[in-house]
Amino acid sequence: MLHTWEVCGCAIQAPCRGSFKCPALTEYNGLSKKIAENNDPRFICTNCFEEHRGHLQIQPGINRAPVWCFEKGLHDDDTKLALKFFGKWIDQTAESENEAAKINLLKELVKLLNNINMNNTNILDTQDTNTVPSTASVPSLFLVKTAFAIKKIKVNEEQILPLNTTTCETFGRMLANSVLQERAVLKKRLQSLEEPGSLEEYYNAMPSLLISFFTGLISAIEEKKMQVLARKRKERNMPPSHLNKKKIILPSLFFVSVILTTAFRNWKIWFTHVLSSLC
């Protein structure tokens, strides 16, 4: 049995196991309300419900009292995450080329300034500024995401910061400075970098910041390729293939060795040279 809600004027049905006690879906004035059965609702599957911070009821067992998700504190940071979600949308809109959307959004945000308490610009004006509102009185992260989905507003949650030439150059300089500052630490590992006994020793001796950067970069590319490959293999009734970690580690080591060789020219840590010595 499913429960029916209206969110942004659209009827949706969530799993009843999730609607039993989980505050992911609650009534909020102007955004959501519980309604009678609808003949044409949009369904939310259990996987999507749980993926976006909804929680299903779990039977506690005989003679055991249930412990609900809100009692475990699983919704304590919903307000923070919902605000961050809005922030990502604002950043995404600001970096877009849709000037009309940017102007309209700015006009709506300016209206919020009238509700700011001038005595404390860090909080919105409330009847009692000494009282912290309950999280039950604000929409949950799940409800906010549902509203965005109904409005067909796609928010790229993976992109933490909008990337442009300025931010990339700034990040590059920060990364370079961190590498140069690690000279003393790396010098202590110089033997492992120049004459490693194994590829693992060479990998572990590398600066963690650079390794993390390149493994993250290459992993993201390889994972996207794997998703396309998995879809094609599924269409052909073939088992999914697995990502080879060497496809991530080896290129990462190569790029890191290029940067370290550029930064410290007297060190013999060129990846191809080290690799040949291990063969």
Score class of each variant (00 low, 15 high):
76 D>L: 12
244 N>L: 04
89 W>H: 11
77 D>M: 12
195 E>M: 12
100 A>Y: 08
198 S>V: 00
227 Q>K: 14
21 K>I: 09
257 S>G: 03
80 K>I: 14
189 R>Q: 15
220 A>Y: 11
219 S>D: 09
178 S>T: 14
279 C>Y: 11
141 L>I: 06
50 E>N: 13
82 A>R: 02
85 F>E: 07
118 M>G: 03
14 A>H: 00
92 Q>P: 01
276 S>P: 00
128 D>K: 02
266 N>P: 04
86 F>A: 10
157 E>N: 10
70 F>W: 15
214 F>E: 01
97 E>I: 04
31 L>P: 06
271 F>P: 00
195 E>D: 14
271 F>M: 05
63 N>M: 14
87 G>E: 00
3 H>F: 10
125 D>T: 10
254 F>Y: 14
233 R>Y: 11
261 T>M: 06
201 E>R: 12
74 L>R: 12
239 P>K: 02
6 E>N: 09
167 T>L: 02
182 E>I: 07
141 L>F: 05
145 K>L: 09
105 L>F: 00
222 E>W: 01
86 F>D: 04
11 A>Y: 04
53 R>N: 14
92 Q>M: 09
122 N>D: 08
230 A>V: 03
254 F>T: 10
239 P>W: 07
30 G>P: 01
110 V>K: 12
193 L>M: 07
103 I>L: 08
218 I>G: 00
229 L>R: 14
108 E>Q: 13
48 C>A: 11
92 Q>G: 04
90 I>H: 03
153 I>L: 14
105 L>P: 00
6 E>W: 05
196 P>D: 08
175 L>W: 00
112 L>W: 09
64 R>D: 05
262 T>Q: 15
101 A>E: 13
